[in-house]
Design a protein around this nucleic acid. Structure first.
Lengths: 155, 155
DNA sequence: GTCAGTGCAAAAGTTTTGCATACAG
DNA sequence: CTGTATGCAAAACTTTTGCACTGAC
């Protein structure tokens, strides 16, 4: 917790600097969106993030447009990243160290993981085709243990 | 070429059988959609596929709804598969043997590849978390050699 | 003939844009 | 004060649905 709090201030300062450098303004809406993404390891869709913030800050009355605009800004600044999880649509998450996703197709549960061998292989493949790597992502879709149990019960 | 022609008939027969088995009908629209996806290794969005077919068969007058309905049907039947390529949206391709994608973020070019070591690792990871694997996918985003050259010229 | 499939158009979602107002710098 | 950011509502897209009609079986 302590650790996270410190990190957050660093992130916030970086964000403020970035805004200042680009002649942009630091606003309560932008901070709340950043904070919400930082504090919740959930993967938000623009719509779910909007709902979550409306519920958490009933007095704020934040608009959808602001959500979309800020998500775009944060993503372009590499502070958050987005991935499309198939039928669940595009989701955003705070950009921590890179990791991949294991997704349950039944309940939508998401496990994050990182495998060094795979990371290394990816670099090799990009090199082989002469590509300059920008990012990479991997998703494994499956059924989580809980849902497997549930499905077995039904039979 | 010869080889592809033979394969296509096999696929078409399988598709017809599948339709018959489920009390569904074999229609010209369905065949043309299947054929177009089979013959073009391009990754189509519903919209680009619609446009392509309208252009290729001006007399057919196929509706968007049919495109969406048929893509859904073909995907559910594991004849084609869909992936979301970030900003480029959801795209469909003929389901060949499994492979992954290397995508140029500049020009949208897509290279397909397969790496056995990564495939093996994915199975191990799923197992580790108790997931029953359904599918998996990997995307490496980068800049292709051509675009790298173009970008260098500009400077 | 029967019933699933189609095209069309309307509806439902999702994301973007224009504009007057609010508010950070 | 100035000009960027916001909320709102309209617009632009994308995808789904309802329905009368067509066409496969």
């Amino acid at each position: 917790m302590e650790c996270k709090a410190i990190e957050y201030h660093i992130i916030l300062e970086q964000f403020k600097d970035l805004l200042k450098q680009n002649g942009m303004k630091y606003t309560l809406q932008r901070e709340i969106i950043l904070k919400t993404l930082f504090e919740n390891s959930t993967h938000f869709t623009p719509e779910s993030l909007h709902r979550f913030i409306r519920d958490s800050y009933p007095n704020l009355n934040i608009g959808v447009a602001t959500i979309y605009r800020t998500l775009g800004l944060l993503e372009k600044s590499d502070i958050i990243s987005s991935i499309s999880f198939g039928i669940q649509g595009k989701k955003y998450e705070f950009e921590q160290t890179h990791h991949d996703h294991l997704i349950c197709d039944e309940c939508g549960d998401i496990v994050e993981f990182l495998d060094k061998d795979i990371e290394k292989k990816q670099l090799e493949i990009a090199k082989e085709f002469g590509y300059k790597i920008v990012s990479h992502m991997m998703q494994i879709h499956g059924i989580c243990p809980k849902c497997q149990a549930k499905l077995n019960e039904k039979e």
